[in-house]
């Protein structure tokens, strides 16, 4: 995997998730950060910090990104959501336009 094809998402606790750029771009918010010309430092370094999103939530979100890509390619499986994560996950999803 070439470095420019990946992005690093960093959780509130500093945990780093390196994922495919096209997976991360499932989120409209991240897509805007990575594609808007110039201004965002995220665009240049491919690193996005989420000081408001905890590690388990960010992990779940990354799983969703990949699940969503699979879904789009025709593999329609069920995406499991742990009840105890739901509310926090929603707030993150709201922020990420996901």
């Amino acid at each position: 995997m070439k470095k420019e094809d990946t992005v690093k998402l960093i959780s509130a606790e500093g945990f780093e998730f390196v994922i495919d750029k096209n997976a991360a771009m499932v989120s409209q918010t991240i897509r805007n950060m990575l594609t808007s010309p110039g201004s965002f430092s995220e665009t240049q370094h491919g690193v996005v910090r989420f000081p408001e999103i905890s590690t388990p939530i960010l992990e779940k979100i990354c799983q969703y990104f990949y699940w969503s890509l699979q879904f789009a390619s025709g593999k329609e499986t069920e995406f499991y959501i742990e009840p105890e994560l739901t509310l926090e996950l929603m707030m993150a999803a709201n922020y990420l336009h996901t």
Binding site: P83, T86, M90, A93
Partner: peptide, 25 residues
């Protein structure tokens, strides 16, 4: 929607989940 091609957003999945188990929540 299943098999209709449009991928549900994470928000939709969460809301769907809450609706299904509303009493537990």
């Amino acid at each position: 929607p299943q098999g209709s091609g449009k991928c549900p957003s994470l928000m939709e999945l969460c809301i769907h989940k809450i609706r299904k188990d509303i009493d537990a929540y």
